[in-house]
Design a protein around this nucleic acid. Structure first.
Length: 275
DNA sequence: ACTTATTCCTGCGTGC
DNA sequence: TGCACGCAGGAATAAG
C-alpha cells in the first residue's frame, strides 16, 4: 500500500539515477491500468531529458526538458524497479522506460490500480488529479491550527478526515492507524470532537511516523520494495496496523489490539490507549 | 458542501 | 488437488 513514505522512497531511489538522463524509449505492455495509458504518451516523452524528480501527495513527478511532466501513481500494488537491461520482464510489468546509459525503470503492478500520464508542466497544478489536493503533511503549513480548522464541525470519523487527500495528502490506511495510536485518539472519534490538544498531538504523530518510515525505506507489507528490489523495514516498527489480537506495545498497557472496519477499511487501535 | 457507497484488479488465505 | 469465496485498499466517481 504505497503511501507518502513508500512513494518518497521510490522518488529518492530513482532521482539521482535518472536525473539528466535522456528517455530513449517508452514501452508499454498493457494499456489497461486504472486509466488507459495515453496512445501518444511515448511520442510526448521520447528523446527528452529528465530535469527534476519529486513527489507531490502520492504522485511521482518526472519533469522533462520539453516542458512536460510524466506523472506516475502506484495505486495499491505498484512498484518501480531499476534494472540494467530490459531483457527480463516480470508477469506484471506494464510499462518500462529506457534511458541512455542502459538505465531502465520497470513499472510492476499486479492489481493495476496504478497509472501514468503526461501533461504540460505549467498546467500540472490545474490537472484534475492535482487541483483538489490538500496540504503536504511534512511542511509547516500543516500544523495544529490547520487540522483543527479542518476537523471542526465534521461528522465523519477522524481517520477518514486524515486519509482524505483534499485535506492532507499522503496519509493512507497504515499511517492513519499508526498516527492515531501514537496520539491516543480512537479512529472512530468524530472530527467535531477533536480538541486543540488532540490536534497538536495528532499533527506531531503524523509528521513523526511519516519521517521515521521514510528513513527506513517505507513499509513492505505486500508489494512495496525499494527500487533496488530490497524490502523496506518500517513494517517491523508498526504499533497497531495488522496486529489484531496482539498486545499493545505500551508496557503498562498490554491490552489487545482491535480491528474494526471504518468506511470499508480495516482500522487497528488499542482498546485502552485510544479514546 | 458534505458524506457514504461503488468501482476497478489480482494474489492470497480459508473452508469444504 | 481444486474450486468458490472474501479480503486487501487509493481515490475518482456516483449517489444520497
Amino acid at each position: 500500500m504505497p503511501e507518502l513514505p513508500e512513494v518518497q522512497t521510490v522518488v529518492n531511489g530513482i532521482k539521482s539515477k535518472i536525473n539528466k538522463h535522456k528517455i530513449l524509449r517508452f514501452k508499454k505492455y498493457i494499456s489497461k491500468l486504472r486509466y488507459p495509458i495515453q496512445k501518444n504518451l511515448s511520442s510526448k516523452v521520447e528523446s527528452s531529458t529528465v530535469t527534476t524528480v519529486f513527489r507531490r501527495a502520492k504522485y511521482i513527478i518526472i519533469n522533462l526538458s520539453n516542458n512536460r511532466s510524466l506523472v506516475i501513481h502506484l495505486g495499491m500494488s505498484g512498484r518501480i524497479i531499476i534494472v540494467k537491461n530490459n531483457k527480463k520482464k516480470f508477469k506484471h510489468t506494464h510499462f518500462s522506460i529506457l534511458f541512455n546509459k542502459n538505465l531502465v525503470i520497470q513499472f510492476i503492478d499486479p492489481r493495476r490500480f496504478g497509472y501514468i500520464f503526461v501533461t504540460e508542466t505549467a498546467s500540472l497544478e490545474k490537472h484534475r488529479f492535482f487541483v483538489n489536493l490538500g496540504v503536504e503533511p511534512l511542511i509547516g503549513q500543516f500544523n495544529d491550527r490547520y487540522l483543527l480548522n479542518v476537523t471542526k464541525n465534521k461528522k465523519s470519523p477522524i481517520k477518514n478526515i486524515i486519509m482524505n487527500q483534499k485535506y492532507i495528502v499522503g496519509v493512507g490506511n497504515i499511517y492513519a492507524s499508526e498516527a492515531l495510536f501514537m496520539s491516543g485518539i480512537h479512529p472512530s472519534r468524530l472530527g467535531k470532537d477533536i480538541t486543540k490538544r488532540d490536534s497538536e498531538k495528532l499533527v506531531r504523530a503524523i509528521k513523526s511516523v511519516l519521517k521515521k518510515s521514510i528513513k527506513l525505506g517505507g513499509s513492505s507489507i505486500n508489494d512495496h520494495t525499494m527500487v533496488s528490489g530490497k524490502m523496506g523495514y518500517f513494517q517491523n516498527k508498526l504499533y497497531v496496523y495488522g496486529r489484531e489480537g496482539s498486545k499493545c506495545v505500551k508496557r503498562s498497557c498490554q491490552s489487545p489490539i482491535i480491528r474494526i472496519v471504518i468506511a470499508q477499511r480495516s482500522s487497528f487501535y488499542c482498546s485502552e490507549c485510544q479514546r
